[in-house]
Design a protein around this nucleic acid. Sequence first.
DNA 1: GTCTATACCAGGATAGAC
DNA 2: GTCTATCCTGGTATAGAC
Lengths: 232, 232
Amino acid sequence: MDDDLKFETFKGFVSLSMEDMCREIYIDNRERIKIKKEGVAVKNLVKIFNAALSLSNSKGFDAMSLRDLSAEAGLSMGALYTYFSSKEELLHMIQWQSAIVMKILLDQIKGMEDPHAKLKRVIQAHLYLSEVMQQWFYFAYMETKNLAKQEHKKAIEAELFTEKILIDIMKEGREKGVFNAVDMELTGAVIKSMLQDWYLKRWKYDRRKVSVEKYAAFLVDFVEAYLVQPRP
Amino acid sequence: MDDDLKFETFKGFVSLSMEDMCREIYIDNRERIKIKKEGVAVKNLVKIFNAALSLSNSKGFDAMSLRDLSAEAGLSMGALYTYFSSKEELLHMIQWQSAIVMKILLDQIKGMEDPHAKLKRVIQAHLYLSEVMQQWFYFAYMETKNLAKQEHKKAIEAELFTEKILIDIMKEGREKGVFNAVDMELTGAVIKSMLQDWYLKRWKYDRRKVSVEKYAAFLVDFVEAYLVQPRP
DNA sequence: GTCTATACCAGGATAGAC
DNA sequence: GTCTATCCTGGTATAGAC
């Protein structure tokens, strides 16, 4: 099956480690960040974002005090403020990154023809992406409500964007006669919810020792059963 | 179809309005609450919980200050503290209620024999329940992380409890030979995630004008397709 | 039973030494 | 570039008048 994407392969060609992310954040915010040596800045940003994600994902961004953050990151309060000018700015920096990454999804299905293969690929890519960046995805989901109105709207659009990709694939499959006629909006919505479950309930899948590849294979089966079932 | 439960019917025999909930909370906490006239107490609890759910569901429980709450509920700070003795106690009072309600689910499938009917009923009942108590379910999901360790554990058990119900139905169906052999843990997990999506993404389903009955019918179809598909 | 006034502290943010 | 010391707002909580 050449439409099958392995997790290891995927990890090989995306550069999304904590350091990759922090370097990108640094470059995007060169003017605002007071530290000018890239090496120093990236090293500290890694500490800051690791600490920030870990703390806010366990107790909530709002409940995380900057003193907590300072202790966990091993930097003083003063040092923190050379990387962002307010707690809210920190929130936006984190939120922003996870949104940007979505474009990777689109790349993954470019040039594919077969709707079955395309559906499978988008499910795999979404899960693999959220596996590599679990903390970022979890944060983005849980802290949406804390965003300012405009940013909040953008987050909602990001969710609908993924659904749109799914719906387009279903439409194509319908036109080519390989999928059933179904309510595509609802189908897209529930697929999305099952994709999200993977990064929202890691405690559950970890405990049960379900790998991301297994979950992906299951999900593809599950969805295909509905899309190609023989109808009476 | 006599296994079909209408939303209106369901609403008729559950008593879960805001006033019902607050009366129950009052009775459960008679000693702690300083106000002794039931009529007065329930009236104010309605105001308090309405305000608390609305505020915390839009900005997060932690971000909601008691000054906010006081203004929204139309009661002074002093008055608030006659109903609970700390913000944390308020959190627990809210969290506790939504857990208790779960037992209604079990009642709903008692005495049913056919696995198909049972599955349908549990999906409908779960969705209807979360429809009537949307704010409570949303709160319980989003604020789990703020709970003390022990309470947090209880919340997780509640999630696994619902899955257990689903898994038991699948087992029964498997034994009776009416369902396929599937990975029941994974299937239970994704059904749960789709049930949760209904109360977590109300903005989406409202916007698309999807009724709870329509969503329920869709979900039943979707799941059945997987459980009874002809296998090669 | 309810309010106002106030105590007290934690949190975000910054100035200035090193 | 980083730290310590400090400012001050806004949060939780309570005392005591009505």
